[in-house]
């Protein structure tokens, strides 16, 4: 009888906490591995000689052979394409927030006829495959002279990015109680001032995050970029098509050339991304 009592002692709280901790650490490690291992492999192979890239078994340690990297740096037009990519992505970012954020604000604050239809239509812009749209767009762009300009391409990318911009900012503005704005109005602000001094500071991190989305959408887009630009190629249009049919070691080097600038950008704006999830300044 007494034995049974002894075996039936409840597990101490610290046990459960330890198990929880283990689970937390294990999932953290898993997530990190998930993200870091591909990047690690990409970098190792970029810094290896062609023979090591195709060879087996792998050592997993880079030999710091800069042949592939050097080939890339000397490949005519990479630097220019990189600049074009950044340019188009920034323009896309500005345009899609400039157009998307007011739309998001209107959707969350005002009732107007056709509101639901508008929300649907915004998403519909993503329903048509780009290869289908690219031909008429390219014809039109050639005629109006937008062809082969960063601005022209940014307009196309903005169309792709705008649904995200509108829907993200819509939910951001909806998350700010209208009472805050009303309070500002009673204290003497007009609509614009209330927006600028009360709402904007609260949603800015979120807007920055949706701007990052717009940036990455533009950065990753290939087809329109390949059709709409010739002299002013973006990096993806410039590289991906060639990489697709290139030897393995150059695929890795090109992959790194595409990933690293994006990583640097994300790293630079990480503060805003974290802010969106409410863990700023940690």
């Amino acid at each position: 009888m007494t034995d049974a009592v002894i075996t039936d002692v409840p597990r101490s709280v610290s046990d459960a906490r330890a198990a929880g901790r283990f689970l937390l650490i294990a999932s953290t490690v898993l997530l990190c591995v998930w993200v870091l291992v591909p990047i690690y492999l990409l970098i190792v192979n970029t810094l290896s000689s062609p023979a090591e890239v195709t060879g087996f078994p792998k050592t997993g340690i880079p030999s710091f052979d800069f042949g592939s990297v050097q080939f890339f740096l000397s490949f005519a037009g990479v630097a220019r394409a990189l600049w074009n990519s950044v340019l188009v992505a920034v323009l896309t970012m500005v345009l899609s927030i400039g157009l998307g954020a007011p739309a998001g604000y209107a959707l969350s604050r005002f009732d107007f006829p056709g509101k639901e239809a508008f929300r649907l239509l915004v998403v519909m812009t993503r329903a048509f495959p780009l290869p289908l749209l690219a031909l008429p767009l390219a014809v039109m762009f050639i005629r109006v002279g937008l062809d082969d300009t960063a601005l022209g391409l940014a307009i196309v990318h903005t169309v792709l990015a705008i649904p995200f911009a509108v829907l993200i900012t819509f939910s951001l503005f909806s998350g700010i109680p209208i009472e805050l704005e009303e309070a500002a109005w009673t204290l003497g602000c007009n609509r614009w001032q209330a927006f600028r001094k009360v709402v904007l500071p609260l949603v800015l991190p979120g807007i920055a995050a949706s701007a990052v989305f717009a940036f990455t959408i533009s950065w990753n887009e290939v087809f329109a970029a390949a059709v709409m630009t010739i002299e002013n190629r973006t990096l993806t249009a410039f590289l991906i098509q060639s990489l697709n049919v290139s030897p393995l070691h150059l695929k890795f080097a090109g992959g790194a050339a595409l990933v690293i600038p994006a990583l640097i950008f994300i790293f630079a704006v990480r503060k805003y991304l974290f802010a969106m999830w409410g863990i700023a300044n940690r």
Binding site: L87, G145, T149, A150, E231
Partner: peptide
């Protein structure tokens, strides 16, 4: 950005 965009035309 807009200025360089027009400049490269």
């Amino acid at each position: 950005a807009a200025m360089t965009a027009t400049a490269t035309v």
